[in-house]
Simulated assay, not measured.
Amino acid sequence: MNELSKSLDVITAEINSYKQVAGQSLFEIGKRLQHVKENDLAHGEWESWLKSIDLVPQTARKFIQAYEQFGNRAMSSDLPTGKLFEMLSLPETVDREEFIKQVHVIPSTGETKSVDEMTVKELREVKKSLNDAKKEKELAEQRAKSAEFELRNANNEKAKFERMWKEEKDKPTQVITEIKKEVVTPDDYEELQKQAFLAQKLNNEVVLLKRAANDMRAQYEDKLTTQNKKDSSTRELQKYLSEQLRALTMNHDSAILNYKIIQGDREAHEIVMKFLSKYEEIIKRQVAEWDELTSLKAVK
């Protein structure tokens, strides 16, 4: 890595120069802005210096974040500034390089596109979907933790009452021998009965909480698995249909070229007419199959 200048004037000139260059200049500007800010080259006058090079703090912060998140990734320099800035707020768990390489499902249309093929609006949809999934996961984890906390409290209360009940149960029976030699009920017998009832109630609640926690985990894992399968199938469908159209177009162009060479030949004419008849039959059958499939289930 080249050593950056310690002179504010030199860095100012470099930034103004890189502002005229597309692509990599975004990261070069961010790199120098970060250097100035971290080393306090503007001597406490950061915002004033930004104003002198016609940058507002919010934009400067985006340049720095773009350099930090995408500066070392070769594919990023081909993307426009708007898309790079839009991807700054992706969840921290999302690998930036993998995100750029992969194709993603557009929520509003169901299409699969790479970042390079998306509009900024479509990229914003995909990002929102990821952020929503992250929030949903965090909420599910919080609910699971709350259920586990309640479960521990219930277990503690249960153990406490069971211990109290055992202590009372193991005490010697009080007998009055001078009067009727009968067992005397302890003064706190009713209280102990209430405590035993409460212990049993807590035990039942523990069972219900365990069951609820397990159900929440199972539902969340099932939802993730279903979504992953859906995304994979959508990508495969897009791939196969695109390959079919591409192959059809290439074969059609080749056939047209050959026919033009021998156009007017009777045998060639008969071959083409037989093909068109068979081709029309195949196309009608395939269209009918797609119509039937797409009408069986409404698109969600």
Results as ranks from 00 to 15, higher is better:
Q24K: 13
Q24G: 08
Q24H: 12
S25Y: 05
L26N: 10
L26W: 07
F27Y: 15
F27W: 12
E28R: 13
I29Y: 05
I29F: 09
I29R: 05
I29L: 08
G30V: 13
K31M: 07
R32T: 04
L33M: 03
L33N: 01
Q34C: 09
H35F: 15
V36A: 01
V36W: 00
K37V: 02
E38W: 00
E38Q: 06
E38V: 03
E38C: 01
E38H: 07
N39Y: 01
N39Q: 06
D40N: 14
L41G: 02
L41V: 03
A42V: 00
A42K: 00
H43V: 03
H43N: 04
G44H: 00
G44K: 00
G44E: 01
G44D: 01
E45W: 01
W46G: 07
E47S: 07
S48V: 06
S48E: 07
W49M: 04
W49P: 03
L50S: 05
I53W: 04
D54A: 12
V56P: 04
V56L: 12
P57Q: 04
P57W: 07
P57D: 02
Q58K: 11
Q58F: 08
T59S: 13
T59A: 12
T59Q: 10
R61D: 15
K62V: 04
K62Q: 15
F63S: 13
I64V: 13
I64H: 03
I64N: 03
I64M: 12
Q65Y: 06
A66Y: 05
Y67W: 12
Y67H: 13
E68A: 08
Q69A: 14
Q69G: 13
F70P: 05
F70G: 06
G71H: 08
R73C: 05
A74Y: 10
A74I: 10
M75T: 12
M75Y: 10
S76F: 07
L79Q: 09
L79D: 03
P80T: 10
T81V: 10
G82S: 13
G82Y: 11
G82N: 15
